[in-house]
Design a protein around this nucleic acid. Structure first.
Lengths: 206, 206, 206, 206
DNA sequence: AATGAATGAGAGTTCATTCAT
DNA sequence: TATGAATGAACTCTCATTCAT
């Protein structure tokens, strides 16, 4: 739960409060996703949530605060969606392949999440950095562990992680959010190949 | 020239006007880069440009309009900076390597440009899409031509272009804008290697 | 009630809100009446109403919207003031006479109403047309009913209604708003006579 | 020429200047007629006239000044158009009838003139009053002269003049500017009759 | 006589946030 | 906990007018 981090929403004490908070969060996701941070308004959110304007401040301190909570929440949801597939992969190259596939699938199903996380770069840079830094760190760890196992070349590092993440994000934007004019398979095929050969251990390379 | 596109700035007819327009554009780049689109204000721009508030509207129809002009202008500047190095490269793999190097260098020298282009995703999606679609198209052409020459594998396509672009952009953000904690060479080395082996023609692959 | 029509003021839900709306409407009538639509300002209205600038927009969407509401409201007030006297008249000729008398009296007591309705021709033509079209229609009906009763000639129609209305409005402007240099009686006498027997010389009338 | 009155346009000294002034006046008539005083802009006028913004001030001191000049000019044009027909009428009742007919015809052909004169009530009340006061005075004189000749009853006065003027103006608005859904003849027939013999039932009339 | 860039006061409007109920 | 009226700072944009050329 994102709420656990930083100054998230104030915890409701009653069941009724819990429902209200949920309604506000959902409405906020819709509003921010559809209009972007600046065109979204607290009024729009409370209207969509079916509560009075003032009620918003029972749960959040500011417009920025909901946004932050939302980014954290969504960041977690992306991770949670992709993680199982990656863990189940037989090796690291395959893991990156299915990671991309799951990521694209998730993005297609939740386009607003994508917009929100990306806009954080301008609204709340800290959230944005945190999301990508954490993700990059995770990838780096995976790669290094794989290197130890001999699945990928030994010099993999953070740079490779950022590169892979960049590929995924841009493919997600282009083929997930903008236009779904390619099969996910076609994407993973092209990229998986690129990674497979590119990242394999040097010896095998020769 | 940005002015050539769509409804760019109104062309000044006198020398004095030309100077004023230049001052406004420069001030706008600084303001948008430093504060982001929404926190930037026309007042801030005109103040920085040393002209009256109303003068802004002699050249632009709206805040959005300058922003659009700026994105177009900067998109062109990035391209113009990187293009020569790419053209001079002996082969395509090397071209991508120096392309990344030049891109990172440019980004480090013009961090505000990066912010502006990226924020376009939320302020003026059309500009943003145009910038990246055009760039991707250019890369795709280069790759295909290289494939014909046998420098890269034969099935390269748009997907590879978007992947490469995503890598570049994320590395630019991380190691160009956020923190310059890696030598450019270290980046191109890692990535160049990844591409070199990954994109090499099939026959050689076997 | 103006509020019943089209997009009138947003209905307040509390007593306090009702009082504020009333204050704004009264202030607006004063401001528009005194300065005319364009020289009137929202700031002037809210200042006179003793509320903050933004409060205005709790009840109206725009400057045009209050104006519209005001026109509808005043149109109704004129009608409501004149109607009883007309209904009480023994016959139609007399009805027109007292109608004019009451109209002049009302205009003298509420000069700003006159200004507002008239300026609607330029600010919100639809309101203006509606006001006069409705009034003309009402007169037409009265005349036709009177014709059936034999009180006026049988061929009366809409054209006569517009003519009578024009007379009333101009006399209201000249002797009600501009200068009160004639007794109301003097006006109704002249007009009543004119309507009753026309302008032909008396002898021929007999 | 309206220019002779009050602070009209500054007289051009050259032929070129005369043409420019003419162009500005025509453009102003179009602009004011189409948009109304407040939505009309000097920029719109100069653009339509094909001259630079500053040139306007070579001929007029202010926006109000053109408007005033225009009202005076148009007031004169209406009068000049209607006068001959009135003078040629055999008697006063007939004069009013053809006066109305000519007025409606003129209004239909120059709808913008109508709007401009009417808006003067709010933009430049002095011009407006002057126009109607002058017109009323003229009608009064005609009526009194006719009374002396025995063509109309002896007690006619200014009040009758304002009443007649009101009829004409409203009929002009309704059947000249708004909708031309009645033959001019139908209007003059109804009104002429009304003026001639009043509204009392025919039987009594005989 | 004409140009067109520059001015700058001023207006309408938005909306995050507060607070009495 | 919820309400919704009230706040007021801030912002974008307009346009009549001036003036150097």
């Amino acid at each position: 739960m994102a709420a656990a981090e930083a100054p998230g929403p104030k915890e409701p004490r009653t069941e009724r409060g819990r429902r209200t908070l949920r309604a506000i969060l959902d409405a906020a996701a819709g509003e921010f996703g559809a209009l972007g941070f600046h065109d979204a308004s607290i009024g729009g959110i409370t209207r969509a949530a079916g509560v009075a304007a003032g009620t918003f401040y029972t749960y959040f301190d500011s417009k920025d605060a909901v946004f932050r909570a939302l980014v954290a929440d969504m960041s977690a949801r992306v991770r949670d969606h992709v993680a199982p597939a990656i863990r189940a992969a037989p090796d690291q190259i395959e893991a990156e392949r299915v990671g991309l596939a799951e990521f694209i699938a998730f993005v297609r199903a939740h386009k607003e999440i994508y917009r929100i996380i990306d806009e954080a770069e301008f609204v709340d840079p800290a959230s944005y950095r945190k999301h990508y830094a954490t993700t990059a760190e995770r990838i780096t760890q995976r790669l290094k562990a794989a290197a130890v196992r001999g699945e990928v070349r030994g010099d993999v590092n953070e740079v490779h992680a950022w590169a892979i993440m960049g590929m995924n994000v841009f493919l997600g934007l282009r083929y997930g959010v903008w236009e779904e004019d390619r099969e996910i398979e076609a994407l993973t095929h092209a990229i998986g190949d690129m990674l497979a050969v590119g990242l394999r251990p040097y010896p095998t390379n020769a």
